[in-house]
């Protein structure tokens, strides 16, 4: 099962949450600076339990998909020029590998920042490509703990999909999320 989405949506935070809940370990590093994840990360054989049902899957955390990457944005976050350029280069490669891995997914959770405009073309491109490949999709409208969060907006943008509002960081509504996972992976 893959976690896909634009940079900074909270994919790795959610991956860590799932791994902590069911494996007792974390998966990857999280940052407020975009493109923190620049390589595909895999955790194998995660077992999620609910009642007497069990679900086993390999979890794939992916680099955020973007249409633009500007090393100067990283410099604004305090990085030196060389470091920023290196991060930008790695980030471009990360986007390419996320796209290449699309075909390997059996199901995908698209993680969106629910405080942001859901109609961005990247979101539409990701969801559209999963649909074109017949890959089941669940949309996690993340960061519901924030005031600006707008789950209804996400639901409106993707009316044909299951949308679950969560806070990966604080663990809100994770029960609903796991229930939806059972439905997605069944």
């Amino acid at each position: 099962m893959g976690l896909y989405g634009p940079p900074n949506g909270g994919k790795t935070t959610l991956a860590n949450r799932i791994c902590e809940d069911w494996l007792g370990e974390t998966m990857g590093s999280v940052s407020r600076i975009a493109h923190e994840t620049r390589e595909i990360q895999i955790k194998e054989q995660i077992v999620v339990k609910s009642g007497n049902k069990e679900l086993m899957f390999n979890l794939v955390d992916t680099p955020g998909i973007a249409t633009k990457i500007d090393f100067e944005d990283f410099m604004k976050s305090g990085m030196k020029k060389e470091e920023a350029k290196k991060r930008a280069k790695e980030a471009t490669k990360g986007v390419i590998s996320s796209i290449k891995w699309l075909d390997e997914m059996d199901a995908v959770v698209v993680v969106l920042d629910s405080t942001k405009d859901p109609y961005s073309q990247v979101n539409i491109t990701i969801v559209g490509n999963l649909a074109a490949r017949n890959i089941p999709v669940l949309i996690a409208a993340n960061k519901v703990d924030l005031k600006k969060s707008n789950i209804e907006g996400v639901k409106e943008a993707f009316p044909q999909y299951d949308v679950i509002g969560i806070s990966a960081k604080y663990g809100n509504q994770l029960e609903d999320f796991y229930a939806a996972l059972f439905k997605l992976l069944d």
Partner: peptide, 15 residues
């Protein structure tokens, strides 16, 4: 949609 991801890939290669 499949061309759009190709466009993103190509864009990333050219950055």
């Amino acid at each position: 949609k499949t061309e759009e991801v190709e466009l993103i890939k190509r864009t990333m290669e050219e950055i």
